[in-house]
Design a protein around this nucleic acid. Structure first.
Length: 512
DNA sequence: TTCCGACAGTGGGGTCGCAAT
DNA sequence: ATTGCGACCCCACTATCGGAA
């Protein structure tokens, strides 16, 4: 199959607004694909490379190459070239990668170039990724969408399921079962603004500590232990503590879900930055582990002694977990019977925060483990802080925000009356706010840049954020975590904005 | 008819490893 | 030694579609 066909379908999918139309277009293409093309066509139309990321970003792509006049590239040839590209390393590799990308782009038509750039950067912007591709695959093969979705969750991979399905038909779906050693997509949580709201929505619940670390899925089969991240990357080699902890448990075959986090000598959780730095260290793990030891803390059991627990209610899964994992290696929790018992949950949240943790996750006791979905039966509750800051600059948006000033540079007042930038945010704006701020900031502009405008520091905006973290990038030595716009405060003058001093005072111990 | 769950898009900050400077 | 880039951790929020209520 020609790449040009994929580029064309991708463009049509992007142009269609109805999801059903996108699905139909994908299904049509999947039916057309030869069996040998399927392992490439499916991930490509789901907006991903089968190889995963291959070290090509905007910089390597930067140089414009004259497009080919006629389409000639086949998907298999492109796949082979990208596999080669991904294996280039060592001195001179950057130049070689750039050259290989240049050759590929030179062989591609304009439409194909656009599609390839989207694939390589992970931004196909066609309004369809894995979930829509799954629907398309179901439609193309006549398999029930829910069954295909479940198989993909269990396989942790769309293309694996696609290959089996297109080769052997709907019967092949039965082969995808929960298996030790094969990671499944983890269940995710929604947010709630309070424990009362969460319990109101869920009824009888477990309220669990939310630890600010790295999510892990731990598989053990006898002496073999594998540790996977939320995106199913294998990080076993970086976490010897987790391997030995798993080997020390009484069960021989299990899959557990939990968080890895580092505690200091006093048993207080270290900052996310410290834990993430440790987990990210790959080269000298032993040294990193001595400086920042980590502990696994589990909260769910997906499989124990070969028994698949996914469809059991949380209560039963947790009973299995408690049988297998001793208390200190489990997340603390409180049980609440319902809205009349909200006080228990409030108290547990307060204690959890005192211990230095992020917040809590409220989980419906009767809910199954919905792998790969942001199910409504887990709700996280974290305290939210707000500040009144001043807009210092704004950047032009991309995609659906093209032509709108989107990403705001945020400043807090300093002692000398100037403003210190604390970070940026593009979150929380409605389309109406985007239109308004584009107009308003345009009038306040003092300088135009390619990326946006700097403005007179006059507009005050209320910002919500989850906490403060250290920064080497910003002048105050700190930056906001997960900053988002709440509303503009036209009733406030910039002299009334919050100061760096009060911010640091509100988060003692963060500033360097 | 209205409501709401699921998705995709729009980017944020930090840290590590590697290659280039 | 320092800098720049890419990958991958953490993530919030809005718009939209389409099925559920």
């Amino acid at each position: 199959m020609l790449l040009a066909r994929l580029a064309q379908v991708s463009r049509e999918v992007g142009a269609a607004s109805a999801r059903s139309r996108k699905i139909a277009l994908l299904a049509e293409l999947f039916r057309e694909a030869e069996p040998e093309d399927v392992p490439v066509v499916i991930p490509y139309l789901a907006g991903r490379l089968p190889q995963g990321r291959i070290g090509v970003g905007w910089k390597v792509l930067g140089r414009r190459v004259a497009p080919a006049a006629e389409p000639a590239l086949t998907v298999r040839e492109v796949d082979a070239r990208l596999t080669r590209l991904g294996s280039v390393s060592g001195p001179g590799s950057q130049a070689e990668r750039t050259a290989l990308v240049g050759e590929l782009m030179g062989a591609a038509t304009e439409d194909e170039q656009r599609f390839l750039v989207g694939l390589l950067t992970g931004e196909v912007r066609q309004g369809a990724l894995d979930a829509v591709a799954v629907e398309g695959l179901a439609e193309a093969t006549g398999a029930p969408p829910a069954d295909v979705r479940r198989a993909v969750m269990l396989a942790g991979s769309l293309q694996t399921v696609a290959g089996a399905l297109l080769a052997d038909g709907p019967g092949a779906l039965d082969r995808f079962r929960l298996t030790v050693g094969r990671p499944v997509l983890p269940m995710l949580a929604h947010s709630a603004s309070s424990v009362a709201e969460a319990i109101g929505r869920l009824g009888p619940s477990a309220v669990e500590e939310k630890l600010d670390g790295i999510r892990v899925q731990v598989h053990r089969d006898g002496d073999t232990v594998r540790v996977h991240t939320r995106t199913l990357d294998d990080i076993t080699d970086r976490l010897p503590e987790v391997t030995s902890a798993a080997r020390g448990l009484p069960g021989g075959r299990f899959i557990l879900d939990g968080e890895v986090i580092s505690f200091d000598a006093d048993g207080r959780p270290r900052s996310f930055q410290e834990t993430a730095g440790r987990v990210g260290s790959r080269v000298d793990v032993a040294t990193a582990a001595r400086a920042v030891p980590v502990s696994p803390v589990f909260f769910d059991a997906l499989l124990v002694d070969g028994r698949d627990l996914l469809d059991l209610p949380l209560t039963e899964r947790h009973a299995e977990l408690a049988r297998l994992v001793p208390e200190p290696m489990r997340v603390r929790r409180a049980l609440v019977s319902g809205p009349e018992d909200t006080g228990t949950a409030e108290e547990f949240l307060a204690k959890t925060l005192e211990r230095g943790h992020e917040g809590v996750v409220v989980k419906a006791l009767d809910a199954a483990y919905s792998a790969g979905r942001r199910g409504a039966s887990w709700l996280k509750v974290k305290p939210v802080h707000t500040l009144d800051l001043v807009v210092l600059a704004a950047e032009w948006g991309h995609g659906r925000r093209t032509g709108k000033l989107s990403n705001l540079h945020l400043g807090a007042r300093t002692e000398d009356g100037s403003f210190a930038m604390l970070g940026k945010t593009f979150k929380g704006m409605t389309d109406a706010m985007l239109a308004w701020q584009t107009e308003r900031l345009g009038k306040l502009a003092v300088e135009e840049h390619g990326w946006g405008v700097t403005v007179r520091p006059e507009l005050v905006v209320e910002i919500a954020y989850d906490g403060l973290q250290r920064s080497t990038r910003y002048p105050a030595g700190v930056t906001l975590r997960f900053a988002r716009v709440v509303r503009y405060r036209e009733d406030k003058r910039p002299e009334e904005a919050d100061t760096v001093e009060t911010l640091l005072a509100a988060h003692p111990g963060v500033a360097p």
